[in-house]
Design a protein around this nucleic acid. Structure first.
Lengths: 120, 120
DNA sequence: TGAACATTTGAATGATTATTCAATTGTATT
DNA sequence: AATACAATTGAATAATCATTCAAATGTTCA
């Protein structure tokens, strides 16, 4: 190994060393991935960004986001299982809302990245 | 439509109204999704978080992240095509690095979410 | 030019995933 | 209890995706 010839070899080995030492355990990486995965489908992201405006029931979510009640419900189940949204029953309806502030921040960060285009 | 009976019906309609008015166009939603999608695979997230420590070549990335050179290269291609990382050639090697500050922030946010557990 | 190194590519496989449709559960109303 | 409304579920299909292996490209050095 290490048979690499490159001017900046030292910096790279140092970076590699830091990366190895600081690398999160796989279990953590998988948890983080799950959050991103939940936001990586247009339909789900639409639901989440709709909920950023306040609590809503499935009926309204379907009206706002389009698609069938069933597909919205399936998406909500995934979002719920992965703690992106939370739900509570109010009579016949289920009220969905954003699970916590972190989710808001992550989504807002995605939106921010959209507007501020690439630097290089 | 609108035949919903629920105590908080007014709030929900207001939220739905705001959501409709403020909803990002599909093209924007898809762009944001792409970013999240890139970070939603453990292998890719590992690569990205390794690169948070500094520029590295494919050889070192493979050493740090595991897997085959080929799979790392395939993942890097996706990350590159979607502006998560950037590359430049240095002699025989390709040097990869994080594309911009936004990517760093989004990843850091994911890590932060990990430590600060659910509020409710 | 040829040999060795570093990385990329393409095609193929198997695994995950979103959506649809039909059937079902839970709740309120009469 | 029966009806209607709201949401969920499960199975099936089609689409997307990560990984592998073998072959190819680009680069340096003798």
């Amino acid at each position: 190994m290490g048979n690499i010839s490159c001017e900046r070899e030292k910096e790279h080995q140092a970076a590699a060393q830091r990366a190895k030492e600081g690398m999160l355990p796989d279990s953590d990486l998988e948890k983080i991935c799950k959050i991103f995965q939940m936001l990586s489908d247009p339909g789900r992201l639409k639901i989440v960004s709709a909920l950023m405006n306040g609590e809503m029931c499935v009926y309204h979510l379907t009206e706002v986001c389009g698609g069938s009640t069933s597909s919205v419900s399936h998406q909500l189940r995934l979002l719920r299982d992965n703690d992106i949204v939370k739900a509570r029953r109010m009579g016949k309806n289920m009220e969905y809302s954003i699970a916590d502030e972190h989710v808001r921040e992550i989504v807002n960060m995605g939106v921010a990245h959209l507007h501020c285009e690439v630097d290089e």
